[in-house]
Design a protein around this nucleic acid. Structure first.
Lengths: 343, 343
DNA sequence: CTGCACGTTGGAAGCGCTTGCAACTGTGAG
DNA sequence: CTCACAGTTGCAAGCGCTTCCAACGTGCAG
């Protein structure tokens, strides 16, 4: 395999100049640069990643820690991150820490700490105080997406606000019997958002003077199938049926719609359903939702990081609120007349 | 930051011995090993990834090239790969080459070739002859999943066979008016499987002496929403309606079921639907399918690679057929009586 | 007791680059 | 014409490890 030395010889330049020419750092005359590049191309030479990294201390690699690439939000973020990183010439090292604490621990310790990454993007991870300290201790830029990360920059949507907006949408349509499907308690350790969205819902209800009926507060694991099971309980059970369901994610909203159909309920005639996310399947189900551009959030995270890496080392930790977009489709409508509120 | 030298001093050993102790290669007495490990732990030291790689020529990093982590099969495979790799202490560098040929090209050239990875796993990529040559030229173990990769080891399921089995299942139930939803032509460049599965379908139909009606041969892009749109055409159009649909993937089967419901068709009473995959949502829709364990395929790919990396450099390129499992649920049944075949 | 094989250790030469430094070149100002 | 200065270039010292090699005990057979 050709080394930089071979390129230097072929180009009639020194190793140093070739290095500068190929890596784009430092001043090189246009002529030398061209020669170096040509020679490299002719030999099929590319700079060795590890040698470059070792010598320069830069990795051109960012670590992405996600709970699971298998779920909508995470894979969407990863796609955004991946595309942006690739364009910038960076590698993406994926840490999919889905299976329990043990693996997660080893990731933080062995992998990230092994100076392999220039920066890390943590997606929706609810980290312990100790874990956060560990992350910060490696003195690399960190940005969190979709979850709080004290001490690091974060990108997040206004979970509470959009939950309130979603609930308000239903209320303004005339609904008063509104159920809320929130994220499972089991997930609370990973995500704070179930709680945040729930708070937004409660606030909207309270503002409207509507009661929050405990039997209409259900939860699921953020998946279609989990929500489907929960919604069957809610809609097919013995309790009075709500006229609207606000699900904390699109997948859960879809699960709810599927359950509703099972019981012969028409959406939105008999039941309005609203979600949050901007999931691809929303169109198929005519789902009214609030679109958070997950890919966009991933892309933004990368841009932030790279800006920090290029510029001064210590950029101020900034908290960015990512904009969302209300998408009204056909899963929400005024409540059925026979159960419409009086006022 | 502490270096191996600091550890050596603290442990009262030479750098060489510490290196051997910490990396687990070579002979070190139990006593020395323990000392080295303790000293490293006390200093919070971990071997530098790049320095190790540079010196040893090993990366402990495998590249995974996928068309998109956003789709079911790919993200499932990646999860399997990721888990297995992490357990083995390897990094996973993700190359999500979804957006067009240009990026894909740069990945193969710059990234993989930069000696960053010890091996590569290519998922469902239909590579050009030149691209395959490039991959093979880096002389690293390669395994392909879900697609042919001449010259490399591959893991695949018997696409043609299971497609035939799926079709046969419908035929044995008494269906003769069977539609097939295959993968989009646009995807042919990436995946060969649409064609392979289609072939299996045709074979089963032919074997049963059944006609393949062109108007019942539809295609979609492997997504629920895409299949939904296609199925609406198929089921709501002016052509005679089939009594069963064999979709080449679960997501497409689900899209078909959704479309059927839109037209008031009951599944399986009015329409039987069968898919292929083992998608998580299958349960919700009662989908009869053939489960290919995608995570398992990913895990197997890694085990194969690692075996090759540890053992002799040149392992024989092996083609492994991964087992699948027929899962009968409630989306398939005998055809409706009024349209049942005569014989 | 001597010799040999084997397990263990340390010295030191790299792995293939990057970059500080100094030397060199050409430019425009003084 | 000289000098200061900015742009280029090459030399060589690392970056932090791995591993070849030789040296050094051991234990055991001869």
């Amino acid at each position: 395999m050709p080394g930089i030395k071979d390129v230097a010889e072929r180009a009639g330049l020194s190793i140093a100049t070739v290095s500068r020419a190929l890596s784009g750092k430092g001043n090189v005359s246009a002529r030398s640069r061209e020669r170096a590049q040509n020679a490299a191309a002719e030999l099929g030479f590319v700079l060795s990643y590890h040698a470059s990294s070792l010598a320069s201390g830069r990795n051109h690699n960012v670590g992405v820690v996600v709970p699971s690439v298998h779920r909508w939000f995470f894979s969407s973020v990863v796609e955004g991150v991946s595309a942006t990183l690739l364009d910038a010439g960076y590698d993406l090292t994926l840490y999919n820490v889905s299976e329990g604490q043990e693996r997660r621990h080893s990731v933080l310790n062995d992998f990230l700490l092994r100076k392999r990454v220039d920066a890390v993007i943590a997606v929706s991870l609810e980290l312990s105080e100790a874990e956060i300290q560990q992350l910060l201790a490696i003195h690399r830029p960190i940005v969190g997406i979709g979850g709080p990360l004290p001490g690091a920059s974060t990108i997040r949507i206004d979970d509470s606000g959009i939950a309130r907006a979603a609930a308000r949408h239903l209320i303004q349509l005339g609904h008063s019997k509104i159920a809320h499907m929130t994220g499972d308690a089991a997930y609370e350790q990973d995500f704070r958002l179930p709680g945040t969205r729930q708070a937004g819902f409660k606030k909207a209800m309270k503002d409207a003077g509507l009661a929050i009926r405990p039997e209409w507060q259900v939860s699921a694991d953020f998946t279609i199938q989990g929500a489907y099971a929960s919604a069957r309980q809610l809609l097919g059970g013995s309790v009075e049926r709500p006229t609207a369901v606000f699900a904390a994610s699109d997948e859960m909203a879809i699960g709810t719609i599927l359950a509703a159909r099972d019981f012969g309920l028409r959406v939105p005639d008999d039941l309005s359903v609203i979600g949050i996310d901007g999931h691809e399947l929303g169109g198929v189900f005519g789902l009214t939702t609030i679109d958070q551009d997950a890919r966009g959030q991933g892309a933004l995270a990368v841009r932030r990081l790279l800006a920090g890496l290029d510029g001064a080392g210590d950029t101020e930790a900034a908290d960015t609120e990512f904009p969302t977009r209300f998408v009204i489709r056909s899963s929400t409508a005024v409540p059925p007349v026979d159960t419409a509120p009086l006022h």
